[in-house]
Design a protein around this nucleic acid. Structure first.
Lengths: 339, 339
DNA sequence: GTGAAAGCGCTAACAT
DNA sequence: ATGTTAGCGCTTTCAC
């Protein structure tokens, strides 16, 4: 690999001139330098640049589960949000483990200029520590306690869940099972609250056996749905708070040969890859995941730019809440009339 | 951020001793150094290490489409294959563009010690250039021409496609549509050839209008299926060569209200997230994606280890071919008897 | 506009 | 076993 020395030698100038040329400054011998760069196939050594400047032209991304198609779509959006050239993404998956998350964050520390984080839980102190140190951070889909100082891109969890609840109420459901996510995550908490508050407004009681909390993974959706099906009096509808748990619910319903929506209606938060091709097609609350990812990266890039210009840029933290849409397909219907 | 100097000062030793301690060598003042490291929260600066040693403790991963759940599963496997601590993954998506791939590779050059690559096409020269330079590379799911010198982890594309073909023949199909991937990719080429060769052995002719080539994306699966449905005489079965095109085919069949498998049987290469929950559940050739990813990373890690020990390690290139399984579910059946 | 030179944090001789 | 020191490739003063 040629170094900047080689380029300078070939162009007959000093390394300083080459460096200036590369950083866009006007240089008398621009042509000669350009020629040398091209001829030698010179690429600056990022490690050396990083050491000298403290900047890495890379961002760290930690998602809870990269195998989840939802986060795959988010990552696609993140990639779209990266401006052309030179900014890279270090991706890691915390597997919903706070411990692993802490290790990853520590490892990334001297490799990146900023972070996209979907913290494992809202009590997570790490993101705020970074912010206090002046490190650009944008939270993805999840907030942390006291995180007002931190950019965040959410969806309207409560509103989306509320629209799902209203839809079920409109259809006539009164006995509804809720499978929500961990109460210490933003989507887990807000979706449950948004859903239940609408039911409460309409004096619909959700007894403890119908109000279940999962972990956002497929297996818990399956298990909790089985639990609902085992009740003496089954619900007539089920709300699942994320895509993976919806998949689990579908498997359980299918395994138990429960006809959807004839016996039980199902409504999920977030669509599935094939949600529209299922029989019946899935009714769900949808959002634009790719756009959400893109927005996150745009905020981060902007903040990185400011961080470069001044020590204390004082860009006020931004909180973006993207809308959700209720997509009514075939998995919800009027409850069957019981005797 | 404290430096190794700070640690040395606090422990009352030289930086060399701290460095030795950190690299695992036995040191007299181990306790004092450990105390200083902990108290200061010292973390070595990776950029400085990289500059000094030339190693980055990171690997670059370039997949063609990170939004594809198949590659998301692969990436999950890759993450599993990373030994505890300190090795990182820089992930990028080439979006099936050779140009973007080249740029990504150039950008990653001074950030990583090795690569996992799913090259955009088999004529791609870049992976071999890296290998010639002594850079550890493992090819993922796709080979390149003349790439005998390069580790690669494939699946038995031809065998899997052949099993699909035999399954359709056994059911009695004789007029079969084939939607394959780009002929200049390994899975595109091998799956088509494996499929067609079995048909040829049984003297089943696939006329040009039934032998279509897509681009592995959902939209091409949809369009080419529409094309098959528009034929004067429709096929009684369709084989789609990857997951995304299978989704497209399903959409087209549904849009045209073609009953599966009653009028047309469908068999795909690779399962879908909800393949088993579709109505009918999808018959397909399956493999263990996570295992494939894990295997790739294990090979790469091994090669990185060798690369560290000697200049010319001469580890012979390995070629791992993982098996596939025919998963017969409900989307294939005996062809309807025509008049 | 340009060049000489310092130095970012670390590791690996080399000398002890 | 330990300390001293050169230098990885680059950017950025500083003096011209």
């Amino acid at each position: 690999m040629p170094t900047i020395q080689d380029v300078a030698a070939r162009a007959g100038v000093s390394v300083a001139t080459v460096s200036r040329f590369l950083s866009g400054q006007t240089v008398r011998s621009a042509d000669a330098v350009r020629e040398a760069v091209d001829a030698l196939g010179y690429r600056p050594d990022v490690a050396a640049q990083a050491m000298r400047t403290g900047r890495h032209s890379a961002v760290g991304v930690i998602v809870p589960d990269i195998g989840n198609p939802f986060f795959a779509a988010i990552v696609k959006g993140l990639a779209q949000g990266i401006p052309d050239g030179g900014l890279h993404m270090l991706l890691a998956s915390s597997e919903e483990s706070a411990q692993l998350e802490a290790r990853l964050l520590a490892d990334l520390d001297s490799r990146v200029d900023g972070y996209v984080l979907a913290p494992v839980n809202e009590q997570d102190r790490l993101p705020l520590e970074l912010v206090r140190r002046g490190v650009p951070v944008v939270l993805l889909d999840r907030e942390v306690d006291g995180g007002e100082d931190c950019d965040v891109v959410l969806v309207d969890n409560a509103g989306g869940a509320a629209s799902a609840a209203r839809h079920l109420l409109d259809l006539g459901h009164r006995r509804i099972g809720v499978i929500s996510g961990p109460a210490n995550t933003t989507p887990g908490r807000e979706r449950r609250e948004g859903f239940l508050s609408v039911l409460a407004e309409h004096d619909v009681v959700v007894e403890p056996g119908l109000d279940l909390v999962g972990d956002f993974l497929e297996e818990s959706g399956r298990r909790l749905t089985e639990q609902l099906l085992a009740l003496p009096e089954r619900p007539t509808a089920i709300f699942t708070a994320n895509n993976q748990m919806t998949v689990g619910a579908l498997r359980a319903l299918q395994a138990a040969s429960v006809p959807v929506p004839d016996e039980i209606s199902l409504i999920g938060f977030d669509d599935l890859t094939l949600g529209g091709l299922l029989q019946p097609p899935l009714t769900c609350v949808v959002r634009d995941e790719v756009r959400q990812g893109r927005t996150v990266m745009e905020l981060l890039v902007e903040r990185l730019g400011h961080a470069r210009l001044a020590e204390t840029p004082q860009v006020p933290p931004r909180r973006v809440v993207l809308e959700t849409t209720l997509l009514v397909r075939g998995s919800t219907a009027t409850p069957r009339q019981e005797a």
